[in-house]
Computed example of a mutant assay.
Amino acid sequence: MRTLSGDPSATPLSFDRLVVVETARQGDYEPLQPDVILAFHELCLVRDDREWFMGQLDDDGSVICWASYGSDLAEAIRSL
Rank of each mutant, 00 (worst) to 15 (best):
W52I: 05
D16Y: 02
A24W: 09
D72F: 00
Y69T: 06
L32Y: 09
L73H: 02
C44L: 10
A76N: 03
L57P: 04
Y29A: 12
D59F: 11
V20C: 10
D58Y: 07
E42P: 05
S71M: 01
E42H: 14
C65N: 07
G6C: 02
S14P: 08
A39R: 12
R2I: 06
L45W: 04
S5P: 00
L73A: 02
L18M: 12
M1A: 14
D60Y: 07
D60Q: 08
S62F: 08
G55A: 02
V46R: 09
A24H: 12
V20I: 13
M54P: 04
Q56A: 10
G55M: 04
D60V: 09
V36P: 00
M1L: 14
E30D: 14
D60F: 08
F53E: 02
S79V: 02
L4Q: 00
D58M: 13
G6Y: 03
A24M: 11
C44D: 10
Y69H: 14
D7C: 08
V36S: 12
D60G: 09
A74L: 01
G61Y: 05
A39K: 03
S68N: 04
M54G: 15
L57Y: 06
V20E: 13
I64G: 09
A67P: 00
L4D: 00
L80A: 05
D48R: 01
G61L: 03
E30L: 15
P34N: 07
M54H: 13
W66F: 14
W52A: 04
P12D: 10
C44S: 10
S62E: 05
A67Y: 06
E51N: 09
H41A: 15
V20L: 11
P34L: 07
L43M: 09
G27E: 06
W52F: 08
D48K: 02
L45V: 04
E30Q: 15
R47E: 06
L80Y: 02
D35K: 04
D7F: 03
A10S: 10
R25W: 09
Q56E: 14
C65Q: 06
D49M: 05
L38E: 06
R50H: 07
Q26H: 14
G55K: 00
T11K: 12
W66L: 10
Y69L: 14
I77F: 03
S62K: 07
E30S: 15
T11E: 13
A74T: 05
I77C: 03
S5G: 08
L18I: 14
L57A: 06
S14R: 10
P8N: 10
L73F: 04
D7W: 01
D49L: 09
G55W: 01
G70A: 00
V20K: 11
R78E: 01
A24R: 15
L13Y: 06
E51S: 10
D59I: 12
D59R: 11
M1C: 11
V63W: 02
E75G: 05
G55T: 03
L45E: 00
P34Y: 07
F40W: 03
E51Q: 13
E30R: 15
R47F: 04
Q26V: 13
R17G: 02
E51I: 14
R25L: 14
G70F: 01
W52C: 05
M1H: 11
